[in-house]
């Protein structure tokens, strides 16, 4: 069990190290397709954000070599990656370990509990962050699965990775 826990902690670090030397350009293309796909499949997410569709959110996954910036306006949704330590201007910032944010997007995480226990950190416009939390919490099922289904059979390895991450997360 201890060995599995260690793997659960190490896998995101390994993923981060593998991504570090890669150029961001192809990633930007993938992220853009992802957020546009979610805008089509999950319009209720954007409706629940209300006026905060015009807010911007920095999502700082601790183990990754870049910070994500989400601008969730459904007319032109954007999700972009920015190298550390470049300063990313945003209305609200959410930072936390890969596995915690993975659980939230996989529909099994209680972001409230994560924040109160200090695993997630929020700064900037708290209302924008709280609104994003409610919008995510109202999404049933897994956003990650949605993304993988959009990618079709080409993302079969990612499906296997998803199953692996779920097992590691449950054992942790």
């Amino acid at each position: 069990m201890a060995e599995e826990n260690l793997k659960g902690l190490m896998l995101p670090v390994v993923i981060g190290k593998l991504l570090a030397p890669l150029p961001l350009f192809p990633l930007q293309f993938i992220l853009s397709r992802m957020v546009r796909g979610i805008a089509q499949r999950r319009p209720e997410f954007f409706a629940r954000l209300g006026s905060h569709i015009d807010s911007s959110y920095a999502i700082d996954v601790t183990e990754l070599p870049f910070v994500l910036l989400l601008k969730p306006n459904p007319r032109n949704p954007e999700l972009t990656a920015h190298r550390r330590p470049d300063k990313v201007a945003s209305d609200a910032s959410i930072a936390g370990p890969f596995m915690e944010l993975f659980k939230v997007l996989d529909g099994r995480g209680d972001s409230d509990a994560m924040f109160f226990s200090g695993n997630l950190k929020v700064s900037g416009n708290t209302e924008a962050a709280v609104c994003l939390r409610y919008a995510l919490d109202d999404l049933e099922g897994s956003v990650i699965e949605d993304l993988l289904h959009m990618g079709g059979p080409a993302l079969m390895p990612a499906h296997l990775l998803l199953q692996r991450l779920r097992r590691l997360e449950m054992q942790a």
Binding site: K121, S123, T126, E127, A129, V130, C131
Partner: peptide, 10 residues
């Protein structure tokens, strides 16, 4: 405690 008046600082 409206969220727009709430602020945290690390």
């Amino acid at each position: 405690s409206p969220a727009n008046a709430v602020h945290y600082m690390d």
